[in-house]
Lab assay of single mutants.
Amino acid sequence: TLDDSATICRVCQKPGDLVMCNQCEFCFHLDCHLPALQDVPGEEWSCSLCHV
């Protein structure tokens, strides 16, 4: 889900339109996540760090 609060991106440390991982609660810009996300993920989304 998009989170436009004062939360910062885990990768670039900047605020903005972010998606939050449902497991670790880290936030990412779509372009900062590795691999980059093309679209906003669904409600139950886990980042690539949680899939390691």
Results as ranks from 00 to 15, higher is better:
V11S: 06
D4Y: 05
I8E: 12
H29C: 02
T1I: 11
K14F: 04
G42E: 10
C32D: 02
T1M: 05
H51M: 13
V19F: 06
Q38L: 08
W45N: 05
S48M: 15
G42D: 13
L34S: 15
L2N: 13
V40E: 04
V52P: 13
G16K: 07
H29V: 00
A6L: 09
Q13L: 11
C9D: 01
H33Y: 07
L30I: 04
P15M: 09
S46Y: 08
Q23W: 05
H29T: 02
C21L: 01
H29S: 01
C12Y: 00
D3T: 02
P41V: 08
C24Q: 00
L18P: 01
W45G: 10
C50S: 04
E43N: 11
A36S: 14
E43T: 06
D3Q: 02
C9F: 02
I8S: 14
S46C: 10
L34D: 15
V11N: 10
A36M: 04
C47N: 05
S5R: 12
A6C: 00
L2F: 09
S46Q: 14
C9L: 00
C9W: 00
G42A: 13
C12Q: 03
S5K: 12
D3E: 14
S46P: 09
V40P: 15
S48W: 13
Q13A: 06
C47P: 03
V40H: 05
D31A: 08
E44L: 08
L18Y: 02
P35L: 03
F26I: 01
V40L: 08
D39C: 08
C24A: 02
D3V: 03
C47G: 06
L34R: 15
C27Y: 13
D31R: 06
H33Q: 13
C24S: 00
A36F: 07
E43W: 09
D4C: 15
Q38A: 12
F26G: 14
D4R: 13
I8N: 12
A6W: 01
Q23K: 10
L2K: 12
H33R: 11
R10G: 07
G16V: 01
R10T: 12
D39K: 07
I8M: 13
H51Q: 15
E44A: 08
F28R: 07
Q23P: 00
H29E: 00
C9Y: 00
L18E: 05
L30E: 09
G16Y: 01
L2W: 06
I8R: 14
M20R: 13
H51A: 15
P35D: 04
T7V: 12
P15I: 05
M20E: 06
E44M: 12
V40I: 05
S48C: 06
F26K: 15
H29L: 00
S46D: 05
R10W: 02
L49S: 15
A36K: 09
A36W: 03
E43S: 12
E43Q: 07
M20T: 10
N22G: 07
L18W: 01
L49M: 13
P15W: 01
C24T: 01
G42P: 11
G16M: 03
P15K: 09
C50M: 02
G42I: 15
E25N: 01
C9Q: 00
C9E: 00
Q13Y: 11
S46G: 06
L34N: 15
D17E: 10
S5P: 09
L49F: 15
H29M: 00
H29Y: 00
H33C: 15
F26L: 06
Q38C: 05
H51F: 04
F28C: 08
C32G: 02
V19Q: 05
D17F: 11
K14S: 05
H51L: 12
P35N: 08
E43R: 09
R10D: 11
Q13I: 07
C21Y: 02
T7M: 10
L37W: 14
L34W: 06
I8F: 14
F28P: 01
V40W: 11
S46F: 10
A6N: 15
L49Y: 14
V52T: 11
T7G: 09
S5M: 07
L30H: 09
D31L: 04
S5T: 09
A36L: 09
D3S: 08
C12R: 06
P35A: 03
V52A: 15
F28L: 05
D17H: 13
E25Y: 12
D3G: 04
W45F: 06
S48T: 08
Q38K: 09
V52W: 01
L18A: 03
H29G: 01
L30S: 10
P41K: 02
A6P: 08
S46V: 14
T1A: 15
D39Q: 09
C47V: 01
R10F: 07
L30P: 10
P15Y: 08
L18T: 15
D31F: 03
S48Y: 11
R10P: 06
A6S: 08
G42C: 08
D17K: 12
T1E: 11
M20F: 09
P15Q: 03
Q13S: 13
D3P: 05
C47I: 00
V52Y: 07
E43H: 14
H51S: 14
Q38R: 13
L37A: 13
T1L: 04
N22F: 07
I8D: 03
D3W: 06
H33P: 06
Q13R: 12
Q23H: 03
T7Y: 13
L30G: 05
E43F: 08
C50Q: 06
F28K: 04
N22L: 03
R10V: 10
H29A: 00
C50L: 01
L34G: 14
E25I: 07
D3M: 03
K14M: 09
G42H: 14
Q13K: 12
D39H: 07
P15V: 06
W45C: 07
C24R: 02
T1W: 01
V11C: 05
V19G: 01
E25T: 12
A36R: 14
N22H: 04
V11I: 12
E44W: 03
T7H: 10
M20V: 06
L2V: 10
A36I: 04
G16F: 03
S5Q: 08
H51P: 15
V11K: 09
V19T: 06
C50G: 07
S5E: 06
T7E: 13
L30D: 01
C24F: 00
Q38E: 04
E44N: 09
A36Q: 02
H33W: 04
D39R: 08
C24I: 00
D17A: 02
S46I: 12
C21D: 02
I8L: 13
F28M: 06
F26Q: 14
G42T: 15
A6Y: 05
D3I: 07
L30W: 07
N22W: 04
G42S: 07
V11D: 03
F28W: 14
H33K: 08
D31C: 02
R10A: 06
C24G: 03
D31G: 12
F26A: 12
V40Y: 10
D39V: 13
R10S: 15
M20G: 07
L34M: 10
L30R: 12
C24Y: 00
C32L: 00
R10H: 15
G16R: 05
S5L: 02
P41D: 08
L37F: 05
L49N: 15
L18H: 02
L49K: 15
L37H: 08
D39L: 07
